[in-house]
Simulated scan of single mutants.
Amino acid sequence: MSVLEAFLQGVLQGLTEFLPVSSSGHLSLFQYFTGNSGDTGFLFSILLHAGTLIAVFIVFRRTIADLILEAFSLLRDLFTGRFSAKNMSPSRRMLLFLLLSLLPLTVMFLIKDWVEGFSTDNDVTVEGFCFLLTGVMLLTACKHDHGRKNASSMKAKDAVAVGVAQVVATMPGISRSGSTISAGMLWGFEREYAVTYSFILGIPAVLGAIIFEVPDAFREGSGLPLPVILTGFLTSAVFGVLAIKLVQWVVKGNKLKYFGWYTLALGAVMLTVGVIDNFAGHPIQQFFIGK
């Protein structure tokens, strides 16, 4: 992998991680059509996710700082017997509901190897189908954009619904931000709160994936030079910040439908490519690779 390819993947990751179009799906397509599928591609996608994780901390630093302080306050109240479920602040409610939304991710311990297989195989059929699902979710959410729920009024069932959506989004081609924002809007979240909740919910999920998967990826071997790693990491972080700002504007203006139509079209094209390549010996892939 060259530095230029690392830069292009960093741009792609930074933009698609937060735009509701699936970063994992786009990276899988990029790796498929450039011949970088496999262990190296999988390792590099993890490094790019680390860059976008930094972007979330930069943009939502105040909310994250409030939640961290609230976590210490919660522990203090639990140990001193002053905890009350009736008079919780919005920050404490949000913190507890975020924890509840993370519980469905425990399912990933059972299916992670199966899911990872779709990201590293030499096929884009599943990605095409998942892009179609993303498009359907986004278009459906656009019809439910008048929610009023926020940290003060959301319920436990809302948190579980968003958490389940995040598990579904582990499939390449299903947007994590798109699915969780859509789930929040469908369950009555305010648009801006749906965005904030979605991105902050993604922090432990991405961090956990990095912690558990990076050691295995390195043991399998990568051979990536340091300039390539740094280029991809920094580029994804910078473009990630820009993308977060853009998605906030997109959701506020109820423009998710445009991304819905885009992912529907992309899904249809990739399903077609996947079927042709599987039955004809990958002529389309070989054309882009130059073989």
Rank of each mutant, 00 (worst) to 15 (best):
F118E: 02
F118R: 05
T120K: 15
T120Y: 02
D121C: 05
T125E: 01
E127R: 05
G128Q: 07
F129D: 00
F129Q: 00
C130L: 11
V136R: 09
V136E: 11
L138W: 05
T140C: 14
A141N: 11
C142A: 15
K143V: 09
H144A: 15
H144W: 14
G147M: 10
R148I: 14
R148M: 12
N150A: 06
S153M: 03
S153N: 07
K155W: 02
K157I: 12
D158V: 00
V160W: 10
V162C: 10
V164F: 15
V164C: 13
A165I: 09
A165F: 07
Q166P: 05
A169L: 08
P172G: 06
I174L: 12
S175C: 04
R176N: 05
T180H: 06
A183G: 02
G184L: 03
L186V: 05
W187T: 13
F189M: 12
R191T: 08
R191W: 06
E192I: 03
S198H: 10
S198R: 08
S198M: 12
I200F: 03
L201F: 12
I203G: 03
V206S: 06
A209H: 06
V214Q: 04
P215M: 09
A217P: 05
F218L: 15
S222E: 03
P227S: 05
V228Q: 09
V228D: 00
I229E: 01
G232E: 00
F233A: 01
